[in-house]
Amino acid sequence: MENLQVEDRLNLKAKKFLMWLFIIASFMMFAALTSGFIVYTEGNAERGIKVLLPKAFMYSSVIIILSSITAHMAYLAAKNLQLGKQKLYILLTILLGIAFFYSQFQAWQALYNSGAYFVNYNASQSFIYVFSGAHLIHVIVGLFFLIYALIGAIRNIPQVRNVFRMEVASIFWHFLDILWIYLYVFLLLNQ
């Protein structure tokens, strides 16, 4: 049986590693998009973002940083066996995630109103939608991970698994946070 437990732990380690690899893969996707943006924009002086980025992007950044903090609190709570606290913080993170969604939509609205449409002969502006849209799809995935962790906590699954789920969800959520900041800074630098 001891052997089994060792194998079991190794297995979880290998699975957690899958998440890191997934993060690398998904970062490559955004690296491709952003370098695509550079190649495209450098090609011609008429291209470029050429509008002020909406304020909502800033609010989004604040929201997602806050949610990253709550995700970490949930992880700490899970580690210390404070299940009530863990559930609360996961729930908070999920709510902040949804607020992030709302804020991004607001940003799109603002972009649209300022004339930077998605269907645009200056594709640099279309790229803003692609960046934030692709990021939002990742946020949806992140929400699923959080919900999965929440369900685990509610069902009172064994602590090893609970911490594992919580850890995977929070690693991914921090990645989403850092990814958005990368995208936002990238856009700001190219404004």
Binding site: A25, M28, M29, A32
Partner: peptide, 16 residues
């Protein structure tokens, strides 16, 4: 892992 995601990006733009 490092190259396939780039194709996804390219394909997404092509789909748009």
């Amino acid at each position: 892992v490092l190259s396939f995601p780039v194709l996804v990006s390219a394909v997404v733009l092509l789909i748009f």
